[in-house]
């Protein structure tokens, strides 16, 4: 079984920045299968659809997710109490490919930062480039420091770390890395992909789309990508993605 549904116990909940929650969920069967860049599809009481949330980290026993309150669904999820159970379908999708012996830059923007953590852990030599709106939005810096040889933190307004964007930093370090893995707002991913293309550096991007089933059956989570022969097709973010090679994506 590649994925399954589990009623998993919430064992840790912490608001790590305003409106951003860090959950640790106990579900050994699913956690042991989780790969970097995959996601969990989480049911919230009273809602018809599950909510897709990336796997931020995993151990033999637990999955960790970090999510931001956006609307009602994530609001309800954030109110889950430690000890209560969460209905989770995981691990889903195709994650990051992390080759051995390479130096990889993990670039995350905003709520795109969490999914990079488990991936960075898997790399032999990881560099993190994390971008946030301002000082109050900075999350997971210490976690990345414990698994990366270097961590750059940038804020849009200069209130913390480097004043600027992740793209500016990537331009400075791209010649030192073999590969780039990224998640964040689409304009950022598009700009990162362009820089990587210019430098002939392989780039993987994690995309978002609204989802139904989360497993590839209902076809609602379409995004425009190129197939093996270079023809434009609608592939499905929940199954072929969320992580794509940047060259496959039709921006």
């Amino acid at each position: 079984m590649k994925y399954d549904v589990c009623n998993a116990r919430l064992i840790k909940s912490k608001e790590i920045a305003k409106g951003i929650f860090d959950f640790v969920i106990e579900c050994p069967q699913l956690a042991q299968k989780a790969q970097a860049g995959q996601f969990a599809h989480i049911a919230v009481p009273g809602k018809t659809l599950r909510r897709p949330i990336s796997i931020c980290d995993a151990t033999d026993q637990t999955l960790r997710i970090v999510f931001q309150i956006k609307g009602e669904g994530t609001q309800i999820l954030s109110e889950t109490k430690v000890g209560e159970s969460i209905d989770i379908l995981a691990p889903l999708g195709h994650g990051f490919t992390i080759p051995k012996g390479k130096k990889i830059a993990f670039v995350g923007g905003g709520i795109g930062v969490p999914p990079m953590l488990y991936s960075a852990k898997r790399a032999d030599n990881a560099v993190a480039i994390l971008g946030f709106r301002n000082k109050d939005a900075v999350i997971l810096e210490e976690d990345f420091k414990s698994v990366c040889s270097k961590v750059y933190v940038a804020t849009d307004d200069g209130s913390y770390g480097i004043h600027g964007f992740t793209t500016d930093i990537l331009k400075d370090v791209i010649d030192e890395v073999d590969m780039v893995c990224s998640c964040g707002p689409t304009p950022m991913l598009k700009a990162l992909a362009a820089i990587c293309k210019e430098h002939n550096t392989p780039c993987q991007v994690s995309l978002e789309e609204r989802m139904g089933c989360g497993i590839g059956a209902c076809l609602v989570c379409a995004c425009k990508t190129l197939d093996k022969n270079g023809n434009v097709e609608h592939s499905h973010v929940c199954k072929k993605g969320p992580v794509y090679n940047a060259e496959e994506v039709v921006w």
């Binding site: 018809t48 789309e209 989802m211 379409a222 425009k224």
Partner: peptide, 17 residues
């Protein structure tokens, strides 16, 4: 090829696709 995304929206007790 189907329609461009988004192809789904949640509604009270339902979905649109």
């Amino acid at each position: 090829p189907g329609n461009p995304a988004p192809r789904i929206a949640e509604t009270p007790s339902g979905i649109l696709n």
